[in-house]
């Protein structure tokens, strides 16, 4: 359960962005999250409800956009969709793959209102 500490980091970054843009309110926070990030979306949502109270993001909606697991093969050069516990190349079966998506944990976008 480290979702709470991640949420603190999230809120600090969001608050700093709101301050930079002199906004009153944060309307929406968009986070990209992949299955290999090690973070459970539902837990992140409930942790966010606890952390945001009373701050600039009090009324904000947290939108979690799930990212697909994708690999690219170093042997055949092809990209393929994969799953968290099977990252082998779907074209040639090789284990020499690089992850190109699915481990995201990114604060992608913040929507602000009341920009002074």
């Amino acid at each position: 359960m480290h979702e709470l500490s991640l949420c603190q980091d999230l809120l600090e970054q969001v608050t700093a962005i709101a301050q930079t843009h002199k906004a009153d309110t944060v309307v929406r926070i968009i986070v990209w999250i992949g299955p290999l990030s090690g973070v459970e979306p539902l837990l992140l949502k409930s942790a966010f409800d606890l952390i945001r109270a009373g701050g600039v993001a009090d009324q904000a909606e947290l939108v979690l956009q799930n990212q697909a697991v994708k690999v690219v093969c170093s042997d055949c050069g092809m990209a393929s969709e994969a799953t968290a516990n099977n990252l082998l190349c779907r074209h040639c079966g090789s284990g020499h793959t690089r992850l190109i998506g699915g481990d995201e944990l990114i604060l992608a976008r913040v929507e602000l209102a009341g920009v002074a």
Binding site: I17, H21, R109, V110, L112
Partner: peptide
């Protein structure tokens, strides 16, 4: 009125 800021900051 909504202002969108793309940040791409790591949560860690």
């Amino acid at each position: 009125a909504v202002t969108a800021v793309s940040v791409l900051g790591s949560l860690l």
